[in-house]
Design a protein around this nucleic acid. Sequence first.
DNA 1: CTGTTAGCGCTTTCAC
DNA 2: GTGAAAGCGCTAACAG
Lengths: 342, 342
Amino acid sequence: MARNVKNIKELAALIGISATTVSRVLNGKAELYRISPATSKKVLNAANEFSYYPDRIARGLRLKRTETLGLIIPDIANPFFASIAKTIEFETRRNGYSLILGDSLDDIQTETELLNLFAGRKVDGIILAPVGHSSAHIEEFQKRGIPVMVIDRYLPGTKIPFITTDNYAGAFEAVEYMISKGHRVIACIQGLKGISVNTDRVQGYRDALEKNNITVDNHMILGNDFGVENGYIQTQILMSREKMPTAILALSNLISIGVMRALSEKNLSIPDDVSIVSFDDQPYSAFLASPMTTVEQLKEEIARIAVNGLLAWIRTGKIDQQIDKMLKPKLIFRKSVKTINV
Amino acid sequence: MARNVKNIKELAALIGISATTVSRVLNGKAELYRISPATSKKVLNAANEFSYYPDRIARGLRLKRTETLGLIIPDIANPFFASIAKTIEFETRRNGYSLILGDSLDDIQTETELLNLFAGRKVDGIILAPVGHSSAHIEEFQKRGIPVMVIDRYLPGTKIPFITTDNYAGAFEAVEYMISKGHRVIACIQGLKGISVNTDRVQGYRDALEKNNITVDNHMILGNDFGVENGYIQTQILMSREKMPTAILALSNLISIGVMRALSEKNLSIPDDVSIVSFDDQPYSAFLASPMTTVEQLKEEIARIAVNGLLAWIRTGKIDQQIDKMLKPKLIFRKSVKTINV
DNA sequence: CTGTTAGCGCTTTCAC
DNA sequence: GTGAAAGCGCTAACAG
């Protein structure tokens, strides 16, 4: 095994040519500069033999481009985001880019900090599942010239491109389905208030009820977090009330786990005592005590469109505003909704 | 809002001092160089006012250190690894480092490619959940001077430090528990053959049987992947045999989902028809059709030790060989194992 | 207490 | 066809 070589100059010296030529060959510009095939071959062989990998940091400095994308996500442990991250990583690498990851913990300050950090690291673009309603920090960021593509959630009233699920339609359909099964008192345990995903789902919930002449009871909309704990606590609250819902719409897969925990502690069963529909289909959804009816989102699709849209934006320097997209979700029917007297 | 400033020189010019001084103040070396408080304050104010963030790429080139860690994981969509990744990201950032993520798809070639890529990007260290038995490519890598810390799996016969679960003990306990419940024909659906996690678990399974005077039937050890599909297929094979097992040890959470799918298709129920214990506890484990008895691993702990050990290694330049650790897992008893005639 | 200068490893302009 | 030299933005010697 030959020894390694530390930089392009050293490699060039070893072959007895200039660093310039080595650089040209290694960057596929041999043709362009009419470098002789013999020289080319020598360079390629040497690079291989001495396992030379160019220093991407130096390259990035010179080129003012790092071939790195930033990904900011509110909770990488949430399987919904983990799946999205997997596809994003794959697509990113397939295009010769690397991915730097940040978990914002659904906290706007951490998100801002990550944006600045990534800017300092000169990422070429960012994919962001934003925490908040406020978008000032993101727009300011765009102005610094770094493309930001928003996924999952979008920022109304801004020019920031996004790919998301048609959450309104998903919630609307889910609720209409529950109504068709005879439910009239349906609770909605929501995630973080004020972000589009949540707002749209709640609106879909409201409109489905109203369309079916059921008055919306604001006490039936509660919670403020996408996590397990919130699902647990809100269900306890719901179940201690005089007027208990016969069905619950859980606005995330984690929330529905919390719901299950609370119900099982009270020896209430799904769907006999309470029906439930949850957002985000998961591999385990079908194997729960009561196989869960879910609203499935096109995770891979969202990830792919986001990466490719962002890279196109980076390459051309301008954004295809047509990219804004809301992908239709799909209701997956299982057994967590009971038919009750109509 | 003041305009932004593009580099340290420009900022320095604006205040009317040299870039050196600005650099010193911004790096907290004002004291060291006895820079006057007045100048210091001016610098800090200006940096803030013009929202100047130093270019970490240029800094990295100069310092030969990027304050970036690489994380290579076989499947970020697997909630086990997603949880680990979350803690790793958090700890990494808390220490002022960034994290670049690679998903090896449990493929050794992709893993090697990622290692080289990360080397080119001059990461200061790497946390790796390795795919394979072979460790040559990793050792070669260490020689290039980049510290590699292995998690989850370890490489026997190498000097590469690792943090993992005591998988042998986990499997041993799980099987002894099933035996204590009267099971004698216990199958083991394994993950990727040849990697330590798998080897150790299988060995724990074998030894528990033998210790209880049950002859190990090699037909009862099958499979070769940690994913859902493998659990599904192997269960179908098991259930189509003359001699069916009364219990299954599933060597990952994904495998057990596959087992559940196959059983439910055959209208077999857990634990009435088949008992099961699965590795990796998950938030949903308690809410499955049959609440699942699982072997819980200390994910956060593994992640924390790995990051802090790696950073210490980077800072001091030498590795604390004491770091090699196998954390004891915990058996969580639920209802997926039936007591049968003994 | 502060500044000048050199150089990290790469790519590109300009020159031959 | 190839090379010398400049410079990306930063920090650390060295100098005062």
